[in-house]
């Protein structure tokens, strides 16, 4: 008798679980899965965007080509993307965690709000404008040179922000960091709010130090948010497009910042080889799935016990 009842409730709840997900799944089926299947399908053909003729089936040739043909430059793109992603990912995740904890623990709510608003404002500016502002700052005659020269007392030196490849990479990472640090801080602060204050009070009474509170209470209970931030951040970094694109359009050299999405864009739009572009997209897609699953498993946030 009892077993049947349990199965009944479990089954009912399981159905509800599905039910809550059905609307989103239907939506994704039409607007995401179908296009992704189309992209996979297209990647197996040598399709040119404008051609009216039926494209040739080439199987895995697109995939092999992008890895073996140096002229396509996909390996360079992978390198640029890796450099950018590592350079942006670690500072973003570490500093957003650090700053959110520092603000949350040491200031009252109204001050927290002020800090957060200030940090978040760059995210609110449109990408076109953000890059214009930074292009003006990094123009040889602009603020960038003036400020750095003032601090280092080196008048007249042009630090070649957008023409030297290493500087350019640094600049794109910095602009990206500036734009998104507030976004991740907000996510962390929301997550910090799910940790009941009473736990800290109890620990304090027991004589725990700040460091111990952080390591034993905050970090473990923040795991869902940490995995959220790190997966989102990695995906965002790998998908980055507009920052690099805008710099390139304003005269910066392409090679140091030719990240994967930019490469996909030039291959598909400028060179009109949509088959090859889809192959690159699928590689990126696969990489992101693998990395995300790995991160989720590593952080293992799904079982939270109080």
């Amino acid at each position: 008798m009892r077993q049947k009842k349990y199965r009944g409730i479990e089954r009912k709840l399981a159905l509800w679980g599905w039910g809550f997900n059905i609307p989103s799944l239907v939506f994704f089926a039409v607007f995401s899965f179908a296009p992704i299947f189309y992209a996979i399908y297209t990647s197996l053909y040598d399709k040119r965007v404008l051609s009216l003729k039926a494209p040739n089936f080439v199987g895995l040739k697109n995939y092999i080509d992008i890895f073996t043909n140096k002229g396509i430059g996909f390996l360079d793109s992978l390198k640029s993307s890796a450099i950018f992603s590592f350079g942006a990912f670690f500072p973003l995740v570490i500093f957003s965690l650090l700053f959110s904890v520092l603000v949350y623990n040491n200031y009252k709510a109204s001050t927290q709000r002020k800090f957060e608003i200030l940090w978040y404002t760059p995210a609110v500016i449109s990408s076109v404008v953000a890059t214009t502002i930074w292009m003006l700052i990094f123009d040889p005659r602009g603020l960038g040179n003036q400020v750095v020269n003032f601090i280092l007392n080196t008048p007249g030196v042009d630090h070649r922000w957008t023409s030297n490849p290493s500087m350019l990479r640094f600049v794109t990472i910095m602009v990206y960091f500036w734009k998104y640090i507030g976004y991740y801080i907000v996510l962390f602060i929301t997550g910090l709010g799910t940790i009941p204050g009473t736990l800290y009070e109890a620990a304090r009474i027991d004589g725990a130090s700040r460091m111990q509170c952080f390591r034993r209470i905050t970090l473990p209970l923040l795991k869902p948010t940490i995995s959220l931030v790190s997966v989102l951040c990695l995906i965002h970094c790998l998908k980055t497009f507009s920052t690099q694109y805008m710099f390139y359009q304003s005269g910066a050299p392409l090679k140091p910042i030719n990240v994967i999405s930019l490469s996909i864009y030039t291959t598909g739009i400028t060179n009109q080889r949509i088959g090859r572009a889809c192959a690159m997209s699928i590689i990126l897609f696969a990489a992101m799935i693998i990395l995300s699953i790995a991160q989720l498993k590593l952080i293992n946030a799904d079982d939270i016990d109080y």
Partner: peptide, 17 residues
């Protein structure tokens, strides 16, 4: 994972479909 995967494809690849 399937839902998550929808955010991993660059827009340029699915623009046309």
């Amino acid at each position: 994972i399937t839902i998550m995967s929808t955010m991993m494809i660059p827009f340029e690849a699915i623009m046309i479909p």
